[in-house]
Amino acid sequence: MAGIKAIVQKIWSYNLMRYPVYILLVAGAWQAVFLSRMFPQILFPSIGQIMSSLLKESMDGSMLLKLAFSMRLIIIGMLVSAILTVVLTLLAMYSKSVKSLISTLISVFDPLPGIALLPLAILWAGIGDEAIIFIMIHSIIWPMLLNIIGGFNTVPIIYQDVGRSIGLKDSKLITGVFIPASIPSILTGFKTGWARAWRALISAEMVFGATGASGGLGWDIYMKRSYLDMPGMFASLIVIMLIGIVVEDIIFKKIENNTVKKWGMVM
């Protein structure tokens, strides 16, 4: 008996095992609301309608195409932002005035939603992928910088002194002390950036419309909404949530386990 309990607890301790239970609970509540006819059923479709729409689009490959389109933009946005963040962080490390300039920029730009910059994006980057990437970079880079520079700032002096006393200098000091010591902040920066990238992408696509032959998930949601295809719209939202779960619980978890957890920085 105790053995079974332990096994159940062990399984329960994995996020991926817990999700199905949560999902079933939410789906059950959703279906109950649908059946209660509390909301017009055109706007609040049943789980069955949503799932069959999801299944249909997954089978004919159209969902995969839209997902690939969006993922490509997200990856470009994340990569460019990461490179810019590294460069700006290094500059901030070397010069106090650059650091204060960057923190001013962060406080000025971070609260601005990317969509508010739309007219500028159109003016400078046109209306293609570039404009969406421009808006995405704006959304990703400020929280990323904030976390990473913040992380570097809070590296205890004693670590830095240890680094210096074993002969580390300049770039060696950064790679040997600052980066490992601020991995938790760097990870938070990337996680926040990732979430912001999705938000920016979806809202930019909903404003811009299709930019390529097909368009991504944001455009898809916009189209389905225009045609009152609510099951399809919720199906696309589910896909975005699934991507979130996969990235958070598989990719970021793995990085965390191999770095901060392994090194005993967090429990």
Binding site: P119, I122, L123, G126, I127, V207, F208, G209, A210, Y222
Partner: peptide, 22 residues
Amino acid sequence: DKNLIAMANPDAYTALRSGTEV
């Protein structure tokens, strides 16, 4: 259908005047 892009009137006006793909 593939050329179509959804844009509010003011944004389309900006895009048309600034030499974009629009």
